[in-house]
Design a protein around this nucleic acid. Sequence first.
RNA 1: GCCAGCAUAGCUCAGCUGGCCAGAGCAGCUGAUUUGUAAUCAGCGGGUCGGGGGUUCGAAUCCCUCUGCUGGCUCCA
Length: 639
Amino acid sequence: MIKITFPDGNVREFESGVTAMEIAQSISEGLARNVLSASVNGVVWDSTRPITSDSTLALHTWNDPEGKNTFWHSSAHLMAEALEALYPNVKFGIGPPIENGFYYDVDMGEQVLSSDDFDQIEKKMLDLAREKNPFVRKEVSKADAISYFTEKGDEYKLELIDGLNDGEITFYEQGNFVDLCRGPHIPDTGKIKAVKLMSLAGAYWRGDESRKQLTRIYGITFQKQKELTEYLELLEEAKKRDHRKLGAELELFMFSEKVGAGLPIWLPKGTALRSRLEDFLKKEQIRRGYQPVITPHIGKKELYVTSGHYAKYGEDSFQPIHTPREGEEFLLKPMNCPHHCEIYGHRPRSYKELPVRIAEFGTVYRYEQSGELHGLTRVRGFTQDDAHIFCTQEQVKDEFLGVLDLTKLVLEKLGFEDYTAQISLRDPENPDKYIGSVENWDKAEQAIIDATKEAGLETTTVLGEAAFYGPKLDFMVKDALGRRWQLGTIQVDYNLPERFELEYTGTDNAMHRPVMIHRAPFGSMERFIGVLIEHCGGKFPLWLNPEQFAILPISDRYNSYAEDMLAQLAAADLRGFVDDRSEKIGRKIRDAEVRKVPFMLIIGEQEAESGQVAVRKQGEGDLGVMELEAFVTLMNEQL
RNA sequence: GCCAGCAUAGCUCAGCUGGCCAGAGCAGCUGAUUUGUAAUCAGCGGGUCGGGGGUUCGAAUCCCUCUGCUGGCUCCA
């Protein structure tokens, strides 16, 4: 007999060789039906694998990430089986589960797969799933594994086997398909009831640009058709909220082939929105002791040689601009920090004036490969809500706290309730990758950890993700559809103060090197607004909305009255417009609704006589008639 | 940059395997209508079918190339 410890601490005895599935059955048939895999002593296993020693056990269903992963991993195998049945010469790379579904990298040889083939593959997958073939785990020797895939002629699997040790190699078999795989898998293919192949993409073998590009097939599967339908509906919703689509519809921004790819052009309404965001932050920053500055969009090449960016990114940047006579070389600025370092260094600094906080909405230009560009979230020219704080090592923690507070304020003001902070620290295995003293790194990392704790932030910590010049913290924000975005960032930097030889005179009358903190609560205005558009589906908070209300006269006769009203509301600092077209009121309402104007003021004979307004809220409907002052109050309450 | 796909009017799209002056809805303009909570009616204008080259008697349709876009890969100071 062996002892099995459950997550709630309960311990029960079972015969040695019992499987997780059998244990589940002993609890309830219903549970057993839902079990996809199980963690045995913390390792995810097949639910059908015999347990032969005292163990902890956690059963995984669709509701656990582990359960979903197992399900999708098995689905990848099912897809591979279908592919092999349809295209006998296909060779397989790797096929893991991902956040939403799975993929398999395959080498189709001469054959070109297109999404038109998806139907056929999906059908085959469902046919094979209906066979309810069990996933059978087999331990094989390295020699046997090699001879199997040599015979099959799959060089990718052979390469994978090459990296494995004898004794740790397993195959999984379902139906006629055998794959090299660590597992685990669901009990049988019958659980896969709904299949959808999503897209095709090229993917380099083992992520290496110099190696062969395989075809990556993305898919997702579910246990119920209904779940697939819901998932596809969610994707539809995301598509409706796509900032590229809404940005065009609401006339916020545009792109022009003539101006160039990846260079967003802000239209009047988008500019109104963006300016409000900037003003909000500018005010808040001034309150917090930041000093706004303005620096040029280009800088001499030497500036970036000094900063080190030229050596690191020179080749992969927009190339220098040359002056015609003098032959000077200028670079479009890819960052604001070198300019800000020059500002710090333009005169001697005393410890008394630290921290110095230099802020600029600085537009920067970075070369991105053409395939990388995407709406506002990946562009070649963008504006950072940048600031650099020059302080002493001792001040780092307090400055960090201040920035955390500001960033939280920004996110919450814009309706991002769900976010976490990702702390990126050194890779302990590679100390040589980093510049700056070990003591300073220790202090800075500790300062970040302490500051986030003090700020009560939910954090995740990743080792090895720090920049070479210092540890950093990124805000990971979840939007209304549950998608995660990286927005604001705070980075400690020991490198630039060194390179620019920045100093201050300390209490001891000696020279010291300040620490620099880069920070951007929004990240970039472009990216932030892109995410904001999708988060709120184009229905911006009232204080940001370029159009807060529309005045809709019932007929032309009330147009001048509407204009008077507009003037009164403008005097109350509210923004709107009059729809004075000779259209029926139903039409004007519809158009305002589609434009997502938050409030509509309908005025006709009754309102003109009583001096009141009939208020309608976008998406909600009629709020009834009220005095104009009451409407102003209503608006101000929501600002 | 690489793989796959897409590009027809301001927008959304039709135009099958090459064949009469390239279509629709919405938007726009003009006129009529003067309207009470999500689309009033009529008329009109608008496209060298993304650019260039080729195949063909004939190309929106087939081929090549460039540009842009989409989904990924690689990259991201």
